[in-house]
Simulated assay, not measured.
Amino acid sequence: MSNPETTRTATVDAATLRELIASGRPPRLLDVRTPAEFETSHIPGAYNVPLDLLKEHREELRNHLNEDVVLICRSGARAAQAEQTLAGVGLPNLKVLGGGMMAWQAADAPLNRGAARWDLERQVRLVAGSIVLVSILGSVLVPGLKWVAGFIGAGLTFAAVTNTCAMGMLLGKLPYNRGASCDLDTVVGQLRTGPTAGQRASR
């Protein structure tokens, strides 16, 4: 479980990142969304290292990230968690794409696109909202069900305060969100040899 941010996360906006990518020495782009989200759309040259995998293998990744690193997710929240994780093992030169893929798409920046799938945040809203709705309606017959809705509300509040989301982490493990995969050794090899379009690391 992550702690709330105690230091300000360094960010880079979409326009500046485009300039950096076009420069002679672009930063490493680590996309920490789920493989399914990554397959839907990603920045050309990005490496997909889902947040849970990044946390598990942070020491190994640190040994292969010597240049500037920009962390990417849908809105910036998961990337901020990834920044804290990698900073915790002594990795410098970390930045988060401000506004995440939403800002990148809004800037009409280049994208590699695949089959469309729901992003993780949207899935969380659907599941949480459905549980609350069913609990409230069901409480007409079983009054105790209203506490299920209260539990979900408390969980969402805790997620906002701590900048974590247990439901999102659980949903991220579903087959729908895993997509195609390769092992971490593959992406480590890619990090050694240089950026190529749309690389992936998974379990």
Rank of each mutant, 00 (worst) to 15 (best):
residue 27 P to F: 09
residue 129 G to I: 10
residue 101 M to E: 03
residue 44 P to H: 07
residue 61 L to I: 01
residue 168 G to W: 05
residue 74 R to T: 00
residue 100 G to S: 07
residue 87 A to C: 03
residue 177 N to M: 11
residue 95 K to M: 11
residue 185 D to C: 09
residue 92 P to T: 06
residue 169 M to P: 02
residue 116 A to Q: 04
residue 35 P to F: 13
residue 3 N to L: 15
residue 176 Y to I: 07
residue 5 E to H: 13
residue 11 T to N: 11
residue 32 V to Y: 05
residue 72 I to G: 05
residue 81 Q to H: 05
residue 118 W to I: 11
residue 127 V to H: 03
residue 72 I to T: 10
residue 147 W to D: 11
residue 124 V to L: 03
residue 164 T to Y: 09
residue 62 R to I: 02
residue 29 L to D: 02
residue 182 C to Q: 13
residue 28 R to P: 00
residue 197 A to V: 07
residue 186 T to Y: 04
residue 69 V to A: 14
residue 4 P to C: 06
residue 91 L to Q: 03
residue 76 G to H: 00
residue 95 K to C: 06
residue 40 T to K: 06
residue 150 G to K: 05
residue 194 G to T: 14
residue 194 G to N: 09
residue 116 A to D: 00
residue 88 G to V: 01
residue 188 V to Q: 08
residue 194 G to P: 09
residue 172 G to K: 04
residue 22 A to Y: 01
residue 134 V to C: 10
residue 141 L to K: 15
residue 162 T to Y: 15
residue 175 P to I: 02
residue 78 R to F: 02
residue 66 N to C: 04
residue 35 P to H: 13
residue 53 L to K: 12
residue 92 P to N: 06
residue 111 L to H: 00
residue 53 L to R: 11
residue 43 I to Q: 12
residue 134 V to E: 05
residue 197 A to R: 05
residue 16 T to N: 15
residue 195 P to R: 14
residue 203 R to W: 04
residue 1 M to Q: 06
residue 89 V to L: 09
residue 168 G to H: 00
residue 20 L to C: 03
residue 201 A to F: 07
residue 109 A to L: 09
residue 57 H to N: 07
residue 36 A to F: 09
residue 129 G to Q: 11
residue 117 R to P: 02
residue 45 G to A: 08
residue 77 A to D: 03
residue 179 G to I: 06
residue 156 L to H: 05
residue 116 A to N: 04
residue 19 E to S: 15
residue 48 N to W: 07
residue 63 N to R: 13
residue 97 L to T: 10
residue 72 I to Q: 10
residue 150 G to T: 15
residue 13 D to R: 15
residue 107 A to L: 04
residue 47 Y to Q: 12
residue 175 P to Y: 01
residue 101 M to I: 12
residue 35 P to S: 12
residue 167 M to Y: 02
residue 2 S to K: 03
residue 52 D to S: 13
residue 147 W to V: 13
residue 134 V to T: 10
residue 107 A to T: 02
residue 69 V to S: 12
residue 16 T to L: 09
residue 170 L to C: 01
residue 76 G to C: 04
residue 71 L to A: 02
residue 12 V to E: 02
residue 34 T to L: 07
residue 76 G to Y: 00
residue 70 V to C: 06
